[in-house]
Design a protein around this nucleic acid. Structure first.
Lengths: 128, 128
DNA sequence: TTTTCTACTAACAATTTTGTCAGGTATTGT
DNA sequence: ACAATACCTGACAAAATTGTTAGTAGAAAA
C-alpha cells in the first residue's frame, strides 16, 4: 500500500479517476430508479407505459421526472413514433447510455457477490 | 432490439442484473463523498486526518458518518494502529471495497468520456 | 359528448441526506 | 493545569430527493 507520490505511483495519481469529478458520474445514476430505467430501456422496454409496467412502484410523475433527468444527462433521448394511435414516444439510449449498461451490470454483480452473510474478508496482506 | 423473452434472450434475462437489487449496490456508493473516500483509502490515505486533508470541504462529523456507513456496508473496516501517539485508527478496505475501486474507476472514465460538449451520439441502428 | 389512452407538468408534502454546532474521550507535550 | 492531536457522537437545521395530488393535450372510440 503506497503513500503520497512516488514515481511508480505517477500513472495512478494521474488517472482519470484522480482528475475527473468522481461524483458527477455517480450522481447521474444515483436516483432511486435510474439504474433500473436504463436497464429496462436497454432490454427493449422503451415506452412510458412499458416502463410503468416493469416498475410498478413508481408513479407516472416520478417516472417522467427521472426520464427527464436521464435525458438532461444525455443518457437517453425521446423520439416520436410515427403513425401511432395517440402519438407514441419511445426512449432510446444514446451511446453514452449504452456504455453505462455494462458498468451498472458490474456494479450489480459486485453487490450480489458480497450480498450473502456480510462476511468480511480481507486481502492477504491486511490479514492481521 | 429485443422484447420480452426469446430463447436467445435467456442469458440476458437471467443475468445477475435482472435478479439482484440494482439499487442496493448503487445506494451503497451514492453518497456525496463515498466514491472519493473509497478511492483515497485505496491510495493509502487511510487515516481520518489524511482523508480530511484530501477532502477539505467535508466536515469532521460528515466524514465520520460516511465512514461509518461504508463500514456498515462492509466496504471498509477500522483498525487500531498499535503504539501510536494519540491512539491512531486506520481504515482498510475489505475485499468488497477493493473490488469496488475498478468499478468506480470505470464509472468515472465513462463520465469523462462523455463530458465534453454534451454531443449526443446514437448507435448506427438508431440513427434515424 | 364523454371516456380512454399516452405522455406529460406544476405545486406542494413527506422523506432522506447533508451540514452545522457543540460537545466528549484519551493521550502526550509544555 | 492547560493546550493540542486524533477520532468521534448526538441533536438539530438546511437542502435535496422522492412521492402525491390534480391537472394538461390531442386523438380515437363508445
Amino acid at each position: 500500500m503506497m503513500r503520497k507520490k512516488e514515481s511508480t505511483d505517477y500513472a495512478n495519481e494521474q488517472s482519470l479517476f484522480q482528475l475527473c469529478e468522481r461524483n458527477s458520474a455517480i450522481s447521474m445514476i444515483s436516483g432511486r430508479w435510474k439504474g433500473q430505467i436504463v436497464y429496462y430501456i436497454s432490454q427493449g422496454y422503451d415506452r412510458f407505459h412499458l416502463l410503468q409496467q416493469k416498475l410498478p412502484n413508481i408513479s407516472e410523475t416520478v417516472l417522467a421526472r427521472q426520464l427527464k433527468e436521464l435525458e438532461s444527462h444525455a443518457i437517453l433521448i425521446k423520439r416520436e413514433i410515427p403513425n401511432t394511435v395517440p402519438t407514441g414516444i419511445k426512449y432510446i439510449l444514446t451511446n453514452k447510455g449504452i456504455d453505462l449498461v455494462p458498468i451498472l451490470d458490474s456494479l450489480c454483480n459486485w453487490g450480489k457477490m458480497y450480498a450473502d452473510g456480510k462476511k468480511i474478508t480481507l486481502a492477504a496482506d491486511q490479514q492481521f
